[in-house]
C-alpha cells in the first residue's frame, strides 16, 4: 500500500517537482503589489510538544515600522528565527513579497536576498574596526574567491561613509568594535544591516540595556529608516514602543492577540489581562 501511495505521489500532475521549479531570484523589484512585503500564514513551530508558534498569521506592509510586543515566551524570537531560516516551521507558509518562498532558502540566501537581522545581544565583530565591520557587511559577492581578491570601490567607500553618518559613528571609524559602548554596538549592528541594503529589517530588542539618551537616539534612527526599509521591532520597553510605533502587534502563546495602534492595543481587555496576569 505504501509503495502505491508513493507511486501516486510521484505521478501527481497538479504540481511540479522541486528540482524543476525555477530558481528563486531576489530582485530589487520585489513584488509587493498587494501591499505586504512579508506574509506569515498559519505558521506552527513546536519544540518537544511545546508550541512556540501556534498557527501564527501576520502580514508586514512594505515600508512599515511594526512593533511586536508580548510577554516572555510569546514566540517573538522564534518568529524571527523562522523568517531568517534558522528554524523551520512544522507547518505554514512564509513568503517574502508575492513570490519568494523563504522556507526553501538557506539562512545565507535569505540574508543576501534582503532580510537583515539584528540579534537580541549585540553581536558585532569585536576584533575588527567599525569600518571593517561595515565593509564585511557590504552587499555584493560573498564567495570565497570574490572576497580573497576584493577591493573597495569608491562607491562602496561612499556607502560606508553614508551609513557611518546615519548611525552616528563617524568618530569611531578606526576603533575596534569591541571597545564601543553597548549602545554604539547596537547602532553599529544596525549599520551592518543597512550595508546589506535590505528591504526588511528585523530588530530584536534594540534598546535593552541602553541609557535614556541612547534609547532616544535609537528611536530617531529607526523612525528615520522606516519608509525606505520595512522594519519589524521586537521590544519589551513599552515607553520606547509608544514613541516609535504606528502599528503594534501583540503576540501571546504563539498567536496574534491584538493588533492596532498603541492606544487601541493598550485598552484591549485581553491584552491587559495577559500583561497583568504575568
Amino acid at each position: 500500500m505504501k509503495a502505491l501511495d508513493r507511486l501516486r505521489e510521484g505521478m501527481r500532475r497538479d504540481r511540479v517537482f522541486d528540482f524543476m521549479m525555477p530558481k528563486v531570484v531576489f530582485s530589487p523589484e520585489l513584488d509587493t503589489r498587494h501591499g505586504p512585503i512579508l506574509y506569515l500564514e498559519g505558521v506552527t513551530v513546536s519544540f518537544d510538544g511545546f508550541k512556540a508558534l501556534d498557527d501564527l498569521t501576520l502580514y508586514i506592509d512594505d515600508g512599515e515600522l511594526r512593533c511586536i510586543i508580548g510577554p516572555n515566551g510569546a514566540g517573538k524570537t522564534t518568529m524571527m528565527d523562522v523568517i531568517t531560516g534558522k528554524t523551520r516551521p512544522d507547518s505554514g507558509s512564509v513568503y517574502f513579497g508575492q513570490r519568494i518562498d523563504l522556507l526553501r532558502l538557506s539562512e545565507t540566501e535569505i540574508a543576501q536576498g534582503g532580510i537583515g537581522r539584528k540579534f537580541q545581544k549585540p553581536t558585532v565583530f569585536e576584533q575588527h574596526t567599525v569600518f571593517e565591520n561595515l565593509e564585511l557587511a557590504l552587499a555584493g559577492p560573498k564567495g570565497v574567491w570574490a572576497t580573497l581578491f576584493a577591493r573597495l570601490t569608491p562607491e562602496q567607500r561612499d556607502r560606508i561613509d553614508e551609513v557611518l553618518e546615519i548611525i552616528g559613528l563617524q568618530d569611531q571609524v578606526h576603533r575596534p568594535a569591541g571597545v564601543l559602548s553597548h549602545g554604539q554596538k547596537q547602532w553599529l549592528e544596525i549599520g551592518m544591516l543597512l550595508m546589506q541594503s535590505p528591504r526588511l529589517l528585523l530588530v530584536d530588542e534594540p534598546v535593552a540595556g541602553m541609557t535614556a539618551q541612547e534609547t532616544e537616539r535609537t528611536a530617531e534612527l529607526l523612525t528615520s529608516l522606516a519608509g525606505r526599509h520595512s522594519i519589524v521591532v521586537v521590544e519589551h520597553d513599552m515607553e520606547f514602543v509608544r514613541t516609535i510605533a504606528r502599528k503594534v502587534t501583540v503576540l501571546h502563546e504563539g498567536r496574534v492577540l491584538a493588533e492596532g495602534s498603541m492606544d487601541e492595543v493598550q485598552s484591549d481587555p485581553r491584552v491587559v489581562e495577559v500583561y497583568l496576569g504575568e
Partner: peptide, 22 residues
C-alpha cells in the same frame, strides 16, 4: 584580504557572519 577578515569574523561571531550573508 577581505577573506582574512571574514575568517576572523567567523572565529569571533559565527552566527553573525552567517546572517551577514557569508
Amino acid at each position: 584580504s577581505r577573506l582574512g577578515r571574514v575568517v576572523v569574523a567567523i572565529r569571533d561571531a559565527e552566527d553573525r557572519t552567517r546572517f551577514v550573508g557569508y
